[in-house]
Structure formats: C-alpha cells, structure tokens
Design a protein around this nucleic acid. Structure first.
Length: 270
DNA sequence: CTCCGATCCTGATGGC
DNA sequence: TGCCATCAGGATCGGA
C-alpha cells in the first residue's frame, strides 16, 4: 500500500514529468472514490498547466494557476504516466490527459483514494488541520513532548493522529516505536522529553530508509506498477507476530490498539 | 479528550 | 476444487 515514502517517491517521479504540461481533458470512468470526483475538477482543470507537484502527508498536490488537484492513493491506488492511446484496464478509473498525448492514469481497485479540486489548498478541509511534516523542520522531540502533555491515549494512537503529525501510517508507527524502544501502549503524556527526542529521530530514520527503498523499486513507476513489499526485508516488527525479535530473539507480540494491529517486543520496548 | 463503530471496497485468507 | 465468510486497512465522521 502507498505509504508516505512511496507517495514521496511518486511525487519525485511525477514532478519530472508533469511540471509544465498542460491538461487537455479529464476522462472519468468511475467517479465513486472515497468521495465523488467533483464536477469543479472537470470544469476547471482543462487548459491549466501544472506548475508544481508537492506532497502534504500522504496527499499529493498538482498545483495550477486556478487551483490544485488533491490526490490520495488510499489503500490500493497507483499512478502511471501512459500514452492516452493505451487501453485502460479494470480499475483504471481516471485519466488526466495532457496536450502531449500522455496521461496521468489513476488505478485504484478498492477506491479508498481521492481525487479532488480546490482553489486554495491552504484552506482545504483535508489539509488545513494536518500536523507538521515528519521530515520537516517543525517536527522534533520538543514538539511531541509539548503536544502530548496530559494526554492519556496510547503513544501509537497519538503518532498516527494526522492532526499531530501528518502521514504516519500503521506500519511506520509500529516500526518507529520499536526503533525508539517505546512500548506502543504507553500513555503519550507519560513519556519523557528525552524519549521523545529519540522517537522523533526514529521516525525520521525509518521514513528516510523507506524512501530509499521505495526509490529503488519505484524508479520505473512509469512502466509497470508491480511492487511487492519493497520495505519488507527491513521491517523489524510489523506483520512479524510470533517471529523472533531482531534484537533479542524473543517472539514479537501483537494486539489491537486503537482498532489497528500493533506489533512490538515486550522486552525491547518499555 | 478519548474511545468506539461504521463507512468506503476488493483481494487474500481460511474453513468446510 | 470451489464456494462462502471474514477481514485488513487510511482516514473521516457521528455518537457515547
């Protein structure tokens, strides 16, 4: 599934290809995604040139003069650049077609993704409440420490709250907490400043490593999109229930936390 | 503030 | 072998 690192890698690839291209038309074969594709997008986007491709959390933004396309890949979304003459396959729901004859094709079997239009991304409902970027300058141990005071919810739940930090999914919350040696069930408000410093570093490290891994696999994202668990070999705890901890060898535990599967080592995380 | 369940959807899985 | 039931999973939202 596309996580922040994969979205970032996709962004880098799209940026090279899309900036400067002008949209000729938008072809919608299935409008029912997470939200219906707004008619404003079909009305406003044709004729617009893509000025930049940016990312906010797991959202991709294609910015044009009149507004921005907001893209989210959900669980199963993928994007490819193909010639418009290539026949779409099942689940290829939308083409954004450019004057060049190429198009940006969105495939999304589960349709948890989104394709939206906004005149002003800074004001958009989905983006305006997002916390800082985990790889940005405003994210550090101090920030987490301040935000978490008097909070009783589990640290993992806290980390996955996009209003606190943008774009940390289940996998990276699990992995970051393992690297930082913090028990995912621990109350956010009872973690020391020093441990939050560790945690913020761990989040950065994990995401940067995954971007590297994603970069390798996604280099040819324009071609096919087959990519089986690019970060899989590196995962320390996620999906490793009952397998030996890579640190101490004891079995990885799993339990549901905040209605999400959670993996951790009882001995290496406290 | 916090937790819970529902929601959107399909591929993967596990049981029979 | 095949069919059916279950469920994961990102993010939002309403309700307790």
């Amino acid at each position: 599934m596309p996580e922040l690192p994969e979205v970032e890698t996709t962004r880098r690839g799209l940026e090279l290809f899309l900036v400067g291209q002008t949209v000729r038309t938008v072809v919608v074969r299935e409008s029912r995604l997470r939200w219906p594709i707004p008619s404003a997008l079909l009305r406003e986007l044709p004729g617009q040139a893509i000025q930049s491709v940016t990312r906010r959390g797991k959202y991709l933004l294609l910015q044009a003069a009149a507004g921005s396309v907001i893209l989210h890949l959900g669980m199963s979304g993928s994007l490819r650049i193909v010639a418009e003459t290539i026949a779409p396959e099942k689940f290829d729901h939308v083409d954004i077609v450019f004057n060049s004859g190429d198009c940006l094709r969105l495939r999304d079997p589960r349709r948890f993704g989104a394709l939206l239009w906004t005149a002003d991304p800074a004001q958009h409902k989905l983006l305006v409440h997002l916390g800082p970027e985990p790889l940005g300058d405003n994210f550090n141990g101090d920030y987490l420490y301040r935000k978490s005071r008097a909070r009783t919810r589990a640290i993992k739940d806290f980390l996955m709250d996009s209003r606190i930090i943008a774009g940390i999914g289940n996998i990276y919350a699990n992995e970051s907490l393992f690297l930082a040696g913090i028990d995912p069930r621990r109350a956010a408000g009872k973690i020391s400043r020093a441990r939050y410093e560790n945690l913020s570093q761990a989040v950065r490290t994990i995401l940067e490593q995954a971007i590297q891994a994603g970069g390798t696999t996604l280099r040819d994202f324009r071609g096919s999109d087959g990519r089986p668990g690019y970060f899989q070999q590196t995962l320390a705890v996620y999906g490793r229930r009952d397998l030996p901890c890579r640190n101490c060898g004891r079995p990885i535990r799993s339990q549901t936390l905040g209605s999400r599967s959670t993996f951790f080592c009882r001995y290496c995380q406290s």
